[in-house]
């Protein structure tokens, strides 16, 4: 049975939130994000002495009356950002635990909603193999978003996903104009690192969301187990492994997982990217209100 988190209640609870993106991003005209540059809004920002070439219509004549100098009145600027959401659509996200994929889709949808809610542009990039497919196109406005959500639920998760290849070859990744989110389990030691480096190079704000199923976070099975990798081709695939899982083995697994997550955090911190790790049994609202607020993505 297909699992879905996407419904009206889910989105209504997100109405009060907004994405908090870095102010040094450039973006496009027409958005709601305050940026460092001055613009044409009605909100006063500062004064600046008149310089040759400035539009004389913007001179503050009242100030000239008092000071007999020419000053321009400056106003804040608001920009529209581009939010890219890269969703790992490999079999590892769904085959072992369908709720994990549903959770990833819901998380992507939540971020997308927050973006369109702030009049940003959203693109959902589905990473399948070496490519980042974008069947929904760029989404602006809630009406378009909600039409796209229905299609989001029909995403299939199969085969493998090479995050770095897919992200670096993505054609519409602009520079310095928004947020890129990669949602995956990151169960690959190096494939995703190039992607992060690439996005940082493009001066984008980067967020990595690691989604784990409860069984991955704390394996409850034990004994002699033939572990079948969800992305394996057959039983003889090298990715599979036979293991006698004992309590000590489970303990070793916990150590390995904690160290791996730690290395993810460390790498992201070194690149100025944000990183959160969540389990699919944790309510999405809680993750958004707690962990995204904590890393500063949400306001």
């Amino acid at each position: 049975m297909k699992v879905s988190y996407l419904n009206d209640n889910f989105f209504s609870r997100l109405e009060t939130l907004a994405l908090n993106l870095r102010a040094d991003l450039a973006g496009y005209f027409g958005g709601k994000h305050l940026v460092k540059t001055y613009g044409q809004t009605v909100e006063f920002a500062d004064y600046r002495e008149y310089q040759l070439g400035d539009d004389i219509r913007r001179i503050d004549w009242n100030l000239y009356g008092r000071l007999e100098k020419y000053y321009l009145k400056l106003f804040t600027d608001e920009r529209q950002m581009q939010v890219q959401i890269f969703l790992d659509c490999s079999a590892s996200m769904e085959k072992a635990d369908p709720t994990k994929a549903a959770y990833a889709v819901a998380f992507a949808a939540a971020l997308g909603f927050l973006a369109v809610h702030n009049m940003d542009k959203v693109t959902f990039k589905q990473i399948k193999g070496d490519r980042a497919e974008d069947p929904l196109g760029t989404i602006v406005g809630k009406n378009t978003f909600f039409r796209a959500v229905n299609q989001l639920e029909n995403i299939t998760f199969d085969d493998e996903a090479h995050i770095s290849t897919a992200v670096t070859s993505c054609p519409d990744t602009s520079t310095n104009n928004g947020l890129s989110v990669i949602i995956s389990d990151f169960f690959d030691e190096r494939d995703w690192k190039k992607a992060v480096d690439y996005l940082v190079f493009k001066k984008r704000q980067v967020l990595l969301v690691q989604i784990l199923s409860p069984d991955e976070a704390d394996p409850s099975y034990s004994g002699r187990v033939n572990l079948i990798d969800a992305e394996s081709l057959d039983l003889l695939d090298e990715k599979n492994m036979k293991l006698r899982i004992t309590r000590s083995m489970q303990s070793a697994y916990q150590d390995a997982l904690n160290d791996f997550i730690g290395s993810l955090k460390e790498f992201c911190a070194s690149r100025g990217a944000d990183f959160i790790s969540v389990t699919s049994d944790k309510p999405i609202e809680k993750v958004i209100f707690e962990q995204l607020l904590k890393v500063g993505i949400m306001a």
């Binding site: 690959d188 002699r224 990798d229 990715k239 997982l257």
Partner: peptide, 29 residues
């Protein structure tokens, strides 16, 4: 070991990592 129960996991990546942690343990285990 006649019967191994089969378990589909998202990835055996962490399990393979854990083998290295397992090897670190003292021989008494």
């Amino acid at each position: 070991k006649p019967n191994f129960q089969q378990k589909i996991v998202s990835s055996t990546f962490i399990w393979k990592l854990s083998l290295r942690y397992k090897k670190k343990r003292i021989p008494i285990n």
